[in-house]
Write a protein that binds this DNA or RNA. Structure first.
Lengths: 250, 250
DNA sequence: TAAAAGTATGTAAATTCATGCAAAATCCCT
DNA sequence: AGGGATTTTGCATGAATTTACATACTTTTA
């Protein structure tokens, strides 16, 4: 077996599985582990793979995560943001939750939109405040550590006093069977109150989060008016999410 | 399973859900909890995640305002912050305004202080939320562009319902003759409401701002309990500011 | 305040790694 | 085809890494 031949096989294996173990390779290629190790060193020196303890990994698999403060799946979230923004019309009262997808929406709102936004998230509020023609109203309350959104009875009370046209919420878990789920009890109650007081509810979520379930249930899918993902609504992965007329996939 | 592979999975999980529990991860990845913990320590050392008791969470979600924004006269503001913090005691209800000096105070609060902070500023709220033992309550309302503080009738109403031990406000103008002044009508009314509902009022200001006057009057100096600057209270530049027993220079 | 959950630390076993060296394979030139 | 140079490979050694477990300690929860 030629060295170059092994290299090709190794590369192929990594492209296929994103990783290889030295032990597997030595069995598969019937050479000593040292040889494999030397192969991996060479490929790594050429910058083709990422050598790690016990084997090697795909570089493409590795790098997207490195960008420190980069938002995960930013491109997908931008697509979602632009789809969501199409729902926004002048003079609407819109209620937004927190999270990185919602932040992306807040940032990308066109400057000529004239609407009023309510939010329970200080981050979202500050992002919204960048736009000249929109009104930002914070629903104040106890600031929940970590998730950084206002929660508690005062928030629920405030929410009950306003009638919102469109409510946009992110999601931690979404599945056919369990519907919308989250892991924080306080957050769940805020989201429920948000949904209760809105004419329309839009849930934004990158496709990756689909079919994941968290511990606490928020609502069934039927309580949602729009589900917005970065995928085409006709995508097979989403087919089960919109059997009836509701929710509508965008 | 390669270590790096686990790291990728953990990062992905965090990016997806903003947080992970060690217990969940050890089940998902089928390794001991020690291994997970070591993984989290490594990722945290690399600055990729934020380790918390019981698991880890997303850093991007937590520290939105990283670096970049330089603060004018930072050293002076730190001195002011440390002086101000001496007024804070456990179990106090403290009300804070917004502004860079106030932000510096919020950041430098010792982690063992157990108190409740109210604020009308989303920035201040987020900075306060970094400390474990303090309660943060946002007084919500219309978010005023540029100054980024909540204003309007709802804020005044809320403020009138709480009795604060200490109110800390920044300043735009302070002078012997005109007292405390500001340039924004809405902000002035919020500050007045803050002062009305506090037992003690502290004004923080870098020395540079002394003897400056803005268009709208907030109050006379006699309505202030403490004036806190970066200078020694005995400094000649301040001598006229504390003729009587009030305000007290710190 | 006690129980439960989570954390830090050290240890030992297993695995993986780096290095030097010699045998084997390959290449290259005549 | 042959011989020397070069490259590649396998092996031995000790070092380093990784992991699970045990233990003691700290934080959180009820």
């Amino acid at each position: 077996m030629l060295k170059e031949e092994r290299h090709k096989i190794i590369l192929k294996e990594i492209n296929l599985h994103n990783k290889v173990l030295s032990t597997d390779l030595k069995d598969q290629l019937v050479v000593s582990e040292d040889t494999i190790r030397r192969d991996l060193i060479e490929l790594a020196d050429q910058g083709l793979i990422l050598k790690v303890h016990g084997g090697a990994m795909s570089k493409t698999f590795h790098y997207p995560f490195n960008g420190q403060n980069e938002v995960y799946a930013l491109e997908a979230k931008r697509v979602i943001a632009d789809k969501t923004i199409e729902l926004f019309k002048n003079d609407m009262l819109i209620l937004m939750e927190g999270g990185t997808t919602i932040m992306e929406i807040a940032k990308r709102i066109p400057d000529d939109l004239e609407a009023t936004f309510f939010t329970v998230s200080p981050h979202t509020a500050l992002a919204l405040a960048e736009h000249d023609n929109i009104n930002v109203i914070s629903i104040g309350g106890k600031l929940l550590k970590n998730s950084n959104i206002h929660t508690g009875a005062s928030v629920i009370n405030e929410l009950n006093n306003i009638k919102i046209d469109l409510c946009v919420i992110g999601t931690n878990g979404i599945s056919i069977k369990e519907g919308l789920t989250d892991s924080d009890w306080e957050v769940v109650h805020v989201i429920k109150a948000m949904m209760n007081n809105a004419k329309k509810v839009a849930v934004v979520s990158i496709a990756e989060k689909f079919n994941s379930v968290q511990k606490i249930k928020i609502c069934d899918l039927s309580a949602i008016d729009y589900i917005i993902t970065e995928l085409d609504p006709k995508n097979a992965a989403l087919s089960e999410y919109s059997g009836n007329e509701k929710p509508l996939l965008l």
